[in-house]
């Protein structure tokens, strides 16, 4: 069985947010929700300032606290090491949100895409209402509805359960890369099997001292970061008194 992991090359990452948008596109994420997200910092004082960007997503921890804490095993590890979710078992207790140190779990507070249920036309008779357009294009929820995640998740998660990144389990099981990986124009995300010594992820992990987020918690995250977002070169010097 593969043990899937991701290596993110921060130097190749350009902070464009394509992964965030791609994920929202692929997984029909409701407004305001990001499974793929970022952590940014602006460090230094003018004129010596840089902005640093780190793409984030569920770490698919080997020792996942969300899975441990889930009362009904709605959160579970797949045989491929992916931390997946079954909305039909989820009782909405949100204990996973307590346990996840990365903020990778979202709860569906309102009906997803409810803004598309509005019936108002901004120019009556000349434009659609949001609901009218969804009906006209024969979509579900929102006009760009992607049915794919229905294969082994829910294409749109119901109200009242949590939802989270599933490494695009529906794509992985069909032999496709997670969409954030495919959509990244910078090839900053590399996906693969930790148990395969020849996988690209292992090639990179054998090359760089990879960083994980909050490893001290013992979660054993499987999203690894290599290199620097801004690998500046600078003039050598010993500083001064």
């Amino acid at each position: 069985m593969p043990n899937y992991a991701m290596v993110i090359d921060l130097q190749l990452c350009t902070g464009c947010g394509g992964c965030i948008i791609g994920c929202k596109n692929e997984n029909n994420l409701p407004e305001g929700v990001r499974w793929s997200n970022k952590i940014t910092e602006t460090l230094g004082r003018f004129p010596h300032v840089r902005y640093h960007y780190r793409p984030t997503l569920c770490n698919h921890c080997e020792n996942a606290p969300c899975v441990r804490g889930c009362p009904t095993r709605a959160l579970y590890k797949t045989k491929d090491g992916i931390t997946a979710h079954d909305p039909d078992k989820c009782i909405g207790c949100r204990y996973c949100m307590v346990n996840c140190p990365y903020g990778a779990v979202n709860y569906t507070w309102n009906k997803p895409h409810q803004e598309w249920e509005d019936n108002t036309e901004i120019i009556p008779g000349c434009t659609y209402s949001p609901r009218g357009l969804v009906n006209a294009v024969d979509a579900k929820g929102w006009p760009i509805f992607n049915p794919d995640p229905d294969v082994n998740y829910k294409a749109i998660r119901p109200t009242g359960v949590i939802e989270k990144c599933h490494f695009c389990l529906h794509r992985v099981e069909a032999g496709d890369l997670p969409y954030c990986v495919e959509v990244c124009p910078s090839n900053a995300r590399v996906f693969g099997d930790l148990d395969d010594p020849n996988s690209k992820v292992n090639e990179l992990l054998g090359m760089f001292r990879a960083e994980q987020l909050r490893p001290e918690l013992g979660t054993r995250p499987k999203v690894f970061y290599i290199r620097e977002f801004c690998p500046c070169a600078y003039e050598p010097g010993k500083g001064m008194i």
Binding site: P2, D80, N146, P147, D148, V151, N152, H170, R171, V172, E173, A174, G175, D176, L177, N187, V190, F191, G192, D193, S199, K200, V201
Partner: peptide
């Protein structure tokens, strides 16, 4: 050049056709 997913032998075939 890139990491291409290898096809999954076990369950893969059953699921592969289900994507739109």
């Amino acid at each position: 050049g890139g990491p291409v997913l290898r096809a999954l032998s076990t369950k893969g075939t059953a699921q592969a056709g289900n994507l739109s």
